[in-house]
Design a protein around this nucleic acid. Sequence first.
DNA 1: AAAATATGTTCGAGTCACCTGATATAGAAC
DNA 2: GTTCTATATCAGGTGACTCGAACATATTTT
Lengths: 227, 227
Amino acid sequence: MVTPTPAVEDYLKAIYRLQQDGSAATTNAIAERLGLRAASVTSMLQQLAEQGLVNYTPYRGVFLTETGTLAALRVIRRHRLIELYLHKHLGVPWERVHDEAERLEHVLSPYLEEKIAVKLGNPSFDPHGDPIPSSTGELPAQDLIPLYEAPLNVPATVRHIPDDNPEMLRYVASLGIIPGAVVNVTGREPFDGPAYLSIASSEGEPPTNHAVGAGIARTIYVTRSAI
Amino acid sequence: MVTPTPAVEDYLKAIYRLQQDGSAATTNAIAERLGLRAASVTSMLQQLAEQGLVNYTPYRGVFLTETGTLAALRVIRRHRLIELYLHKHLGVPWERVHDEAERLEHVLSPYLEEKIAVKLGNPSFDPHGDPIPSSTGELPAQDLIPLYEAPLNVPATVRHIPDDNPEMLRYVASLGIIPGAVVNVTGREPFDGPAYLSIASSEGEPPTNHAVGAGIARTIYVTRSAI
DNA sequence: AAAATATGTTCGAGTCACCTGATATAGAAC
DNA sequence: GTTCTATATCAGGTGACTCGAACATATTTT
């Protein structure tokens, strides 16, 4: 199999993410993600189907085949390894790594991919809390729930913050909400009202309290803290 | 000015190197370097001329304009920074960095370029001993002479080893001839015969002695050691 | 069930950024 | 001035997309 072109890789990523979100990978949804027109997407989906990367049912959208999923995971792995690397070893700020990774993920050789993975200690999560697939396409297990729906007064660990909105990233980071942070939901206002959070600061400091909107609290995912 | 395409960057690099070697940047010479046909090169040269990157005289070849030179130097800077970075920070073996850099140099953002440069301490020479242009296109001064022609029994510092032949690279490296190494030419056999070298090993060890062919000794460049 | 709306597909076409073989021509060498 | 070689022009092709417009299919509303 030949190396997929950058455009193909972008399609695969988009489809993968849609599937992850539970939404159907439909023509329009993909077009919107990629900023293209539906007509373009249709013809690309047909090509992807020909290459055996997706199963395509006209008017019904696509889903990734086994090989398609693997190809998608490989791109995602590269993307996330690059993000993490840039952050840890080159001091690239968190909200900037995504765009840089977007450019590099298409040209990273398998050799360098492994070098970087080893340098990072074969990590399982990137700076946004997203899981990093292994080189064979295994995903680390996680049991994510939206922060908004976390049980009250049970410590939760922030695992995922969407990486597509730098403004929002900075805002939540300023509250101390970063992947790995431990948060308690202490209450929720009714009618889709804000959630009250108690956020553990570093080392002995008292936790800080904030109320954040339901919208944001639903896009952030947490796991129940192990301890 | 738009970002040059990878192909354009490759042309600029090839032209730059030909000029450096003193050879005229002629259609065929460029075609040979890039593994293309003369017809293809002619039409690309016309495009480069339109973009103001080269001066083109039909049947006479090209030379880089001011902006062309700057563009070439930027690519070369990226290439060499990447080489050095991969070697120092990711442990990529010396003979492998060139090919990897070839793929990455076209997608490195100015931002990352600077991050990397700073991380490396704004170096002036890459692992092959090639000078790294500054971000404004300044080249560090050097006064290179072919190892074969170095004055006898005067310590010389290895500055440049051509990076296009991995076999040869490994051979000379095994003798201790790497950029930065200090070498004494202790004699030369007549009729294009081998040169006798005394190569300083690391730290206190006695220098080793070898005879190397005139061919190789002419492709390696040295400067008179500062001390 | 028909009409209205939303979604998706086909078609024809275009672009971009290259590359090439065949043939013609300029410049240099004899 | 002829010959040789390097170079240029021409006409054409390719891969890898992208798009608008017209048509087809689904879904929802009445």
